[in-house]
Design a protein around this nucleic acid. Structure first.
Lengths: 199, 199
DNA sequence: TGACACCCCACACGTCTGTGTGGTATACAT
DNA sequence: ATGTATACCACACAGACGTGTGGGGTGTCA
């Protein structure tokens, strides 16, 4: 999967496109490229683009404005590395396990909010005090899910569990006891993510 | 901290723009938006865009094609609730503690990547197996910080600690012992966040 | 010597594109 | 009753834009 080498000039053009996408959040037009390099003809740029397409560095959709697409992954994501190797100036592609896409998590769901965790009742589930849990608002949940429930107007994070005909809010901490779900308890939403930030 | 609310339709338009950027790697034209929604007039789309601009969700550069730019801070901020009250169909403003900006988490730093956690050596710090840690690449760290280090080409998450003149990689699990930092150990970066997703 | 990649230019065609100017209608708060 | 926001429409215009067709030159490899 080795890509053919670029000439210096071709690399400069590619670099300009890359920078344009990065700063403007949209690909440049042919004439914008020509203006930058001082080319007086759009044909010159087209020749460069053809070379870049042929060598597999960009894709171009026909008859559309700003249709240059850089062949690379996810503008909106950070790479997830399976392993890390020493002395790497940049990320090696084969080490990338996938992409972490936080935005889709939030944007697709309108009714999402974050709740700051108080107390250590879920500490064995890796949910620590002051963590933020992302909650998708819904009033039902399935067994085993981590949920946010209201107990007498107080929000709490727990596992939802069932014993016989009864439902319980189960903490992940042996110092606390499960709480039986009754009319004073209502489900606010499901925990879809835990986020902790270090400073 | 103001984030004017969008109407349902406006949100749909915003969503379409977002998806277009994500899939095509370039913003849509006005007519592409019109075609998607079945609008027969470009003026209709322009009205929507004006509303989105006024409310701070997008920016538009004048007289340029595909010049819609998504304002990420507005898109990806979810409210952080201090407490939750029962029977709320919508969120009461006075309960909002702030905004969690997932976007800044990922995009503020150039050299950031995610690493999937293997093993339970940091379990008492709330870092569980299969969690993702967001790592800012740097080759130095301060005492007490959670870091990613390379031990003989193997990446590991630990606390950095000092005892006398020696530095140690300290696990948060009594079943593991601290590792002395020597020439086989190098610091890859600092853990700036922990993210766990539920399904 | 010929083929080919590279590096440029001029100019034209037709469509794409943002913008401008007008309009209709409903809902809602002042 | 008036203004403002929302949610559409029709039509036009000028410049932006990708593309096509033609040309020039240099260097390299076989």
């Amino acid at each position: 999967m080795d890509k053919p080498k670029l000439t210096t000039k071709q690399r400069e053009v590619l670099k300009f496109i890359y920078n344009a996408v990065k700063t403007d959040h949209r690909p440049p037009t042919i004439r914008e490229i020509a203006a930058y390099f001082g080319f007086s003809s759009t044909g010159t740029v087209r020749d460069y683009l053809r070379a870049l397409v042929d060598k597999g560095y960009v894709k171009i959709a026909a008859n559309k404005s700003r249709a240059i697409e850089l062949v690379r992954e996810a503008l909106f994501a950070v790479p997830i590395l399976g392993r890390v190797r020493a002395g790497l100036p940049s990320l090696a592609v084969e080490e990338i396990e996938g992409y972490l896409n936080l935005d889709s998590l939030v944007f697709s769901e309108e009714d999402t909010f974050a709740l700051r965790v108080k107390g250590d009742s879920m500490i064995e589930a890796g949910i620590m005090p002051d963590d933020l849990v992302l909650v998708r608002r819904q009033n039902a949940a399935q067994m085993g899910e981590t949920i946010v429930a209201l107990i007498n107007e107080e929000a709490t994070v727990k596992h939802l569990s069932r014993r016989g005909n009864d439902y319980y809010l189960v903490p992940a901490n042996p110092n606390y006891t499960p709480i039986k779900v009754d009319e004073n308890v209502s489900i606010v939403g499901k925990v879809i993510s835990v986020v902790r930030r270090f400073h």
